[in-house]
């Protein structure tokens, strides 16, 4: 949801004449929302500007974002950073739905719905 939020804000700013670049990791969400400039960091959600405690990688990624600001000449320009996470396990594991645990998911879902209903009645 973070990626959709900033995509909508970026579109608003662009319409107002302010150039933007998004540095993010959810490529499908940003590209479907359609933005002017997107630097795609193929990392787990949470660290689009580089892995923790790696300032050199972070600086390189942020600098690529600046380059994209300056060099893109048309909207919906996506550039991918050359950096990869240490392994790709996260690509499968994040939000993984285990087909053998259908009842557990339904129970979690019921709890979520109850919580959302409670939140709605409070506001």
């Amino acid at each position: 949801m973070c990626h959709q939020t900033v995509s909508l804000v970026a579109r608003h700013l662009e319409e107002a004449g302010i150039p933007t670049v998004i540095v993010g990791s959810a490529r499908d969400i940003v590209e479907q929302a359609a933005v002017s400039r997107f630097l795609f960091s193929d990392f787990p959600l949470g660290n689009p500007c580089g892995p923790p405690d790696e300032p050199d990688t972070q600086r390189a990624i942020v600098a690529m974002g600046l380059d994209l600001l300056a060099l893109a000449f048309a909207p919906q320009t996506t550039v991918q950073t050359p950096f990869a996470w240490a392994n790709d396990d996260w690509k499968i594991n994040f939000m993984y739905v285990d087909p053998t645990k259908a009842d557990e998911y339904l129970a979690v879902g019921e709890a979520r719905k109850a919580k959302q209903a409670a939140a709605k009645t409070r506001t």
Binding site: P44, G46, C49, P52, W90
Partner: peptide, 15 residues
């Protein structure tokens, strides 16, 4: 909803 198993957000410069 970031990936709380694969990483952390202690280093604010990562985001």
């Amino acid at each position: 909803s970031w990936d709380k198993e694969a990483t952390h957000t202690h280093d604010t410069e990562t985001y």
